[in-house]
Design a protein around this nucleic acid. Structure first.
Lengths: 338, 338
DNA sequence: CTTATTTACGAAACCGTTTTCGTATATAGA
DNA sequence: TCTATATACGAAAACGGTTTCGTAAATAAG
């Protein structure tokens, strides 16, 4: 069996309460007793039982990170940011993957209501207005911070990037580079992140009196390949494409390569993507890059503020801007060297 | 406050023990009492307190996944595989990042000894023979399964890929494509995974009577850039390169681009990498791909076998083969079209 | 009809900690 | 000198389950 406070108390002829207080450096305990306890605890390599203390204190020391998927490099970087903060704060990080499945998100979140985690960071699944599991969290006083994909009908803190502005900037960039028929690869569902990017795209095209064209992709890779192949091989092929998320941008490259559609001559491409290796693609991909690591860190920081100080989470909203990295996939003929 | 067994017992005029047994579907309880309890518990939306039951039962329902980093796409995919199995088994997944720091790995693992997790999956940090924290785990009866990066001096189950064979195959492939001066980009430390790849490389070159050349990179990106730049701009530049891990392969591309070294004409490149988008690089990168998702799943499966059935973990070793994906970065002149 | 066994439930101990409260001794204040 | 106030510690009650054991009633065995 592992060493407990009880054993230390017995060996040292002290009461368990005395040992407990000594270990927590209580002022009720004399310096010499503390020293004795500390020394002996170190000698026995005492590690407190986390469940006993969680049970008593009503806090677990865990936070949950709920993500749609982790293969995406954005969420990998976010986990990195979150875990680094959590570890500094002495918290443990539990990771849950929803795989874009609302059912699964619900069952995962419902389990949080009885104390397994003290707080929740999440990026929600694209769904249609089923948010009871989230309001229940709130009812149970478990702080919740959204990052990236927020649910706007829940009042809590969130960390997002400037999706509208960066989508506007992306579209504007394509327009400046000479594109006239710019398509936006979207996704179905109520995701705010997609909606904002869509709106930024729309606004830019209207401001420049260009026709809008929105193509909806799906969660299925094969379906997306078919959808995009149809888009790129039709007679009214766009001459500019904005991929709203990483998943829909990669197929564009594949299909352009397969059909010998020259990037950026026949078509210019911008992707919302967090890939560091975008510059190594053929040709290097112009991206709108979200500050994933920073967003994860910021979200975790807010959550811990709420956990430590009964800080009120309502109405807080941190915006960390994305960056437009211009690369060869959107070059015009004239600056096509480099 | 949340609803407890005690409350259910009081409301139903039963003893807490009766309610507890009913909820666990004990044969000691009559069908009608069970029905009453289940119905009422469902109505009140009862969720058991995980800490109370963990404390009593001595099991947490958590597993730990300890990784050097998660930004790497290999480990992202592995987490995916692990979480999917864990979720099916009703376990929760805690993620810890060591950032290639032995100190951090040690402090993380030491905390596991008092029950926070029931089992550990890990890919170890490259270090030099400091494994007390791992043997301590074993002494505390916490099952440990290595995946990918194993510690060979600890006797436990592991899931690896066939590093020697695939490195041999990679070198052989370069030789077949005409490379004569093949360098191996290695990493310092005792990592078995690197050692095996190194050995596979060495064996292949010896079998073909070619000179070996091993270049050691570091964990620092800038240093690696400098090391590789020096390698590629020297007069005795290699005409073939094997990158032992993802981290050292990407700089090669960058530097080749910067110095107008033509891939695959001036130099052919193979990278050990899990990147799905290797085919979109310029030029498409020939890779040795580890089955990360499958390895994660296999490791988790073994761990749960140990957790559920007191299964003995010694001496088990699952090898899931890597795949050599030949792409343009190693083509010869003659087949350079495509 | 008596005894053994099963069925269905309750009482209480227990897991390892934290926390409240009580108390003996020592010190300070009047 | 007699009462307040610290000081340092112990006893015991939690926290919310699980599990062992005991027992009354019902059933089966002889």
């Amino acid at each position: 069996m592992s060493v407990t406070i009880k054993k230390i108390a017995k060996d040292l002829n002290l009461a368990v309460s005395t040992v407990s207080k000594a270990l927590r450096d209580s002022h009720e305990i004399s310096a010499e007793t503390k020293a004795r306890v500390f020394e002996y605890a170190a000698k026995l390599d005492y590690i407190p039982n986390p469940y006993a203390s969680s049970l008593k204190k009503g806090r677990s020391g865990n936070i949950a990170v709920v993500l749609p998927e982790v293969a995406d490099s954005f969420f990998s970087a976010a986990i990195n940011g979150i875990e680094s903060i959590a570890h500094d704060k002495g918290y443990h990080t539990m990771v849950y993957l929803t795989h874009e499945d609302v059912q699964r998100e619900q069952s995962i979140v419902r389990e949080f209501r009885n104390g397994r985690v003290d707080g929740v960071l999440m990026s929600i699944v694209a769904n249609d207005e089923k948010y009871e599991h989230l309001t229940e969290l709130y009812a149970n006083k478990i702080p919740l911070v959204f990052f990236d994909r927020v649910c706007e009908s829940i009042e809590t803190a969130s960390v997002v990037t400037n999706d509208f502005d960066s989508a506007y900037a992306a579209a504007k960039h394509l327009i400046d580079q000479g594109s006239k028929r710019i398509a936006f690869l979207s996704m179905p569902g109520e995701l705010a992140i997609i909606k904002h990017r869509h709106q930024g795209y729309t606004q830019a095209l209207r401001d420049h009196a260009l026709p809008e064209r929105v193509v909806f992709c799906t969660d299925n890779e094969d379906e997306n390949n078919a959808i995009i192949e149809q888009l790129l091989t039709a007679s009214d092929r766009p001459d500019g494409i904005i991929g709203s998320i990483e998943k829909v941008t990669m197929p564009v490259y594949k299909i352009c390569h397969a059909h010998r559609i020259a990037i950026p001559y026949d078509i210019k491409i911008i992707g919302f993507s967090h890939l560091q290796i975008a510059s190594l693609l053929y040709p290097p991909l112009t991206t709108v890059t979200q500050p994933a690591f920073e967003m994860g860190k910021a979200a975790a920081t807010i959550l811990f503020k709420a956990l430590e100080k009964k800080y009120n989470l309502k109405n807080e909203r941190i915006v960390i801007p994305s960056v437009l990295n211009v690369r060869a996939s959107t070059h015009t003929m004239s600056i096509e060297n480099k």
